[in-house]
Amino acid sequence: MAYQWDFSPVLANAPLLAEGLLNTLKITGTALVFGVVLGLGLALLRLSPRRFLSWPAGFVIEVFRTTPPLVQLFWFFFALPILVGIEMTPFVAGAVTFSIQSASFFAEVFRAGIQSIERGQWDGARAIGMRHDQAMRRIILPQAVKRMIPAFMERAIELMKTTTLIATISYADLLFAANEVSQKTFRPLETYTVVALIYFVVIFLASQVARLVELRLARSGESTVH
């Protein structure tokens, strides 16, 4: 039994898929921005010598790293709105979940980066009269960030793959659009193959860029990834 492949019904729905891809990029971008900012905050709290700051930060990081993201997403979408009495759209639920989830991973990247800076840099900053936060902002972080870039880009790519979970709560991302197109055209084979290829192209290109940057950084000796 030879199956007759026919991609034309899928191509006819290209606008739907394009909109889905746009939404995928939108949720990825949102979660990335909030995830990085929140991740830096979590890392700074975790590195704090005060236990009432470092302990809760460590708890959040561990919980979000050790539970499945899909369970977190369902919790934020189905449970949290009832708990606090607010309306939750799929986009907001996804943005909150993926931001906190990726933040807990980014926090560990930041922490490793900050800890990789030699003590002498701290001593030097203190010697010229800087306070802890000044030294962190002006001396330590700028150097640490450069070392963190490869690990950082790897997490960003993971984040993009994780955003597909949002299709399960009916946000119209690329995977959800695939669902719709496949039901509309009765061509699941072609639809899912095309969508898998779109994801592959986007993520593969991002991976290649990450690899190039990593090579450049490795050459200048500024990388935490070996």
């Binding site: 993009m160 979970l165 995977l175 695939a178 193959t193 898998a196 994801y199």
Partner: peptide
């Protein structure tokens, strides 16, 4: 370089054809 969920749905909805 492809999301796992896409792979699972491909095997479930596309491959049986």
């Amino acid at each position: 370089n492809t999301p796992v969920l896409v792979q699972i749905l491909w095997f479930y909805f596309a491959l049986p054809i």
